[in-house]
Write a protein that binds this DNA or RNA. Structure first.
Lengths: 224, 224
DNA sequence: CACGGACCTGTCCGATCGGGCAGGTTCCGC
DNA sequence: GCGGAACCTGCCCGATCGGACAGGTCCGTG
């Protein structure tokens, strides 16, 4: 059968896939799932970005299944790899497979040339459908990713890096110290409801969705 | 009638009070509440620690009503002032009046020589009773403060500065980036329940009660 | 082998959080 | 005077959090 000259025909033939994930377990799991499909074939694996770039030239897959995990260490490694692959191999479809949903990440992945974005908790059939879609040259985004993408596209346009009001800065400094809404209210002589109101505005302006995230941002901003 | 030689008699006479609070409004409010009582008299006010130490020598109050607010800036200023007053003026009773309850703060205040700890949301009569108690040489802690004190005394004895396990460090680093339990679980390939379990242990070991506080501690620890 | 420690999982519950809705005041600039 | 912004307040709701249960595995030490 040989790996020579893999089929690039859109209609038929085997879809050659490369798996990129730093966990061997995950790669093995994906491999066993995908190889149950007669039209899918895993032709290569890689656990790092550099390894992926080395292997992709020889394996010449049609699809790269890329686990975009912002692991504890680097956040952009996966996105950079995605960009490099799509730049160097325009005929390869990168399908981002990630553990969970992040609006910004969906958009960044698209900018990096990804042709699909699938959250890992989709069922097996969803993943396989996505692979076939991308292999046919289409895009593949599951419902949640698509929704996130739309939200992300709608939000950022006017998404001012809004500046915090004086009061909000006050609240942020307390919030950043781990105080609850009730405690913030007590310290500022305002009601818990009002503290919550300010916190809500801060979350919106900092573009985060939890106070813990806000504390993280505050620490990066040097507010603490 | 003169302020000369204020009565130090335990049984009778006027109780001279000094107010220490950085908010003029609060001082005014306290003054009007206290002066409705015929046996209470506000003889001095101060808005800062240094001012308080200057004024106390001339005013010679029996009671110092000290607002121990860990304002946006300094956390220990109030406690330090409390310690200085009780050291330099052992016949003065310091009654800590604070916005909300904090177990550690109650204990720290006691160590700093405070003879009472009243949370601001007690009713007026509770405050006045506390002042009269301290003036009589007794201690005055409202029910909630007393309960907090007991809890604080029971907890800390073996309170190890427990060290985090490897897994907990991993979780902390994600937690400190503002991730939810679900997200942490997803990234570590464990269930949300387990993530929650680790977070719980981290909170206990760091001696905090919310993830936002944990992020704050983590930032101080340089974990971020 | 038995024990403890680290890790993993689940369920239940009350408290808090975050968002949405509907108001109010004050102050400043047009 | 008439917006508009910043601030303040209340009520509702579903989601998440944090704590307290009650289990389980694996592994290294005694």
């Amino acid at each position: 059968m040989a790996t020579l000259s893999p089929s690039r025909d859109a209609q038929s033939g085997t879809v050659d896939i490369m798996l990129v994930d730093d966990h061997a377990i995950v790669r093995q799991g994906l491999r066993s799932i995908l190889e149950r499909e007669r039209d899918l074939r895993v032709v290569a694996e890689a656990s790092t970005a550099t390894e992926a770039l080395t292997v992709i030239g020889r394996a010449r897959p049609r699809i790269v299944l890329l686990d975009l995990k912002l692991s504890t260490s680097s956040d952009t490694e996966g996105l950079d790899l995605c960009a490099e692959i799509t730049a160097g191999h325009p005929d390869v479809g990168v399908l981002v497979l990630t553990t969970f949903l992040d609006e910004q990440l969906v958009l960044q992945a698209i900018r990096a040339g990804a042709r699909g974005y699938v959250v890992k908790d989709v069922d097996t059939s969803g993943l396989i459908r996505a692979i076939r879609d991308v292999a046919r040259g289409e895009s593949a985004f599951d419902a949640r990713s698509a929704a996130a993408m739309v939200r992300g596209l709608n939000a950022p346009p006017p998404e001012e890096n809004r500046t915090l009001t004086a009061r909000e800065c006050e609240v942020l400094s307390l919030l950043a110290r781990g105080l609850s809404n009730r405690e913030i209210g007590a310290r500022l002589y305002i009601s818990e409801t009002t503290a919550k109101f300010h916190v809500g505005n801060i979350l919106r302006k900092l573009d985060v969705s939890s106070r813990a995230e806000a504390v993280y941002e505050a620490s990066k901003m040097g507010v603490i």
